[in-house]
Nucleic acid binder design. Structure first.
Length: 198
DNA sequence: CACCTGATTGCCT
DNA sequence: GGCAATCAGGTGA
């Protein structure tokens, strides 16, 4: 976790970092669950940064509510919310306590427990290439909102290589405010990439 | 391929 | 009452 915590601590000096830098750093990390004795895991390949009061697209823009309370907790806290009344979306909290910011996990590459993920998804492909699909594949629901990603039932595992993952930045998806901020990050996953499934 | 729609819940205006 | 950090399935070019 040291990488992420260091990144999260950068926020004080540079207002354009914290969640934004964490969103870049999180590419190549893995998200893992082990329910019913079956481990399922994805490599994170797409993220979006959401900040607090200065980010009109953030759930925390208008302050704390019951839904976004986890965003105000310590870095490494899991923030799970329901999207469009149907899907669950998973976030990594990156800001210090009391300063809401988080990284939405928008897409992952299945690397373990693929058959279990296929069962949960009810299909063989497109298992985690979207925030709702990623949660569905891993069995993540609102029950895990506010848990620790270091010690809880859902684990965030650091990228092994010290080198950073190549990525592209684009505007965030599915929002109508602050569309000019390119805070969506997509890992360049090509042949021979260290991110390729093992 | 691009575009359109229904499903469904909670938050906000 | 309207809209949202979505997805899947449909239509038509």
């Amino acid at each position: 976790m040291t990488d992420l915590l260091e990144v999260a601590d950068l926020g004080d000096d540079d207002l354009s970092s914290d969640a934004v830098e964490a969103a870049q750093q999180l590419l190549g990390w893995r998200l893992s669950t082990a329910f019913d004795g079956v481990r399922t895991e994805v490599v994170i390949i797409e993220t979006e940064a959401y900040r607090g009061a200065d980010d009109p697209a953030s759930h925390a823009y208008r302050g704390r509510t019951e839904r976004n309370a986890a965003m105000y907790e310590a870095p490494g806290t899991f923030y799970v919310y329901r999207s469009y009344g149907i899907h669950w979306c998973a976030n990594v909290v990156t800001g210090p306590v009391g300063e809401p910011s988080a990284v939405l996990l928008r897409g992952g590459l299945p690397v373990a427990g693929v058959e279990r993920m296929q069962e949960r998804r009810g299909r063989a492909d497109h298992l985690a290439d979207g925030p709702g699909k990623l949660c569905s594949a891993l069995g993540i629901t609102g029950a895990y909102d506010g848990t620790s990603l270091q010690q809880g039932p859902v684990r965030l595992l650091p990228r092994r290589a010290a080198e950073s993952v190549g990525f592209e930045a684009t505007p965030r998806i599915g929002i109508t405010r602050a569309v000019d901020r390119s805070w969506r990050f997509v890992a360049r996953v090509s042949d021979g990439s260290s991110l390729a499934p093992t």
